[in-house]
């Protein structure tokens, strides 16, 4: 069953075209990734979905136009966006609080999840006291407790060091196997996309078009099994070729002009 469907979504910032007609869909319980070079317009797509910006084209959710932006998605922005002035517990309950859940009830709903998210004992800590990986898990916790229809994750592990990132990817894979969230993940990490996704949309450089759509038919868990991991590596190499093939002419065309 298709939940999210985008048809020819376009977005320009003034004269700058950022999204040049994006069509994609995400089915219920499916984990879909958007893979693309940085600056392509991936985050912009999420801005459209969350209603922060308006674009052209059709955005449907369960077949109906997506106008009630607040209610469908739990959105995790590119930076963790934890509020430094709230303790981790209060950061985690933020979404419920905005929904009008009384603080007490919100805390009761969030508290049992701390162990699962590797944050047990840190309920009263300030965000500044957490490591990068823990902050990301706290941000993810804040996102999933909203119990929205779909998760929008914008490069959740982009700022982490390689080791922490690998640990977080395994962890997220395990979490997804347990919860079967419907999720749309933005990443510029090919391995991450292959590891986590059912399907991958590869974006070109700006203005973003969909260069290819790749199914990832690998069994899960993908990190634990050596033979699966080998298959994943093959897939990864193929995608990297597509990506470089699509972006290379763009990159070389852009190189002489300084970045604005």
């Amino acid at each position: 069953m298709t939940r999210l469907e985008l048809r020819q979504v376009r977005k320009c910032f003034g004269p700058r075209e950022v999204l040049a007609g994006i069509s994609l869909n995400v089915a219920a319980g499916e984990f879909v990734s958007i893979l693309g070079p940085s600056g392509a317009g991936k985050s912009t797509l999420f801005q459209l979905l969350t209603g922060a910006e308006r674009g052209e084209g059709e955005m449907l959710f369960d077949g109906a136009p997506l106008d009630d932006h607040g209610s469908r998605f739990a959105f995790m922005p590119q930076r963790d966006a934890l509020m430094p002035w709230r303790r981790i517990l209060d950061n985690a309950t933020l979404g419920l609080e905005v929904q009008g859940v009384p603080r007490r009830a919100a805390r009761e709903r969030v508290a049992p999840l701390f162990a699962e998210f590797g944050l047990a004992g840190f309920e009263r800590a300030w965000p500044a006291e957490l490591s990068g990986g823990m902050r990301q898990r706290a941000a993810l916790l804040r996102t999933v407790v909203q119990q929205r229809d779909m998760l929008l994750l914008d490069e959740p592990f982009g700022a982490l060091d390689a080791l922490t990132r690998a640990a977080m990817q395994r962890w997220l894979e395990a979490m997804w196997r347990r919860h079967h969230w419907t999720a749309l993940l933005i990443t510029h990490d090919v391995r991450e996309a292959v590891l986590l996704s059912d399907r991958i949309y590869v974006f070109s450089a700006r203005p973003a078009r969909i260069v290819s759509e790749i199914k990832v038919p690998l069994p899960r868990p993908r990190t634990a099994d050596a033979s699966v991991a080998r298959e994943a590596a093959g897939l990864e190499a193929g995608i990297l070729d597509t990506l470089l093939g699509a972006t290379d002419p763009q990159l070389s065309a852009q190189r002489p002009s300084p970045r604005r």
Binding site: G51, A52, G70, F73, P77, R79, A81, L94, G95, Q99
Partner: peptide, 12 residues
Amino acid sequence: EKEIGQMLRAMG
């Protein structure tokens, strides 16, 4: 932080 604003808006 811009992201915090966007996230809160998305929360409704």
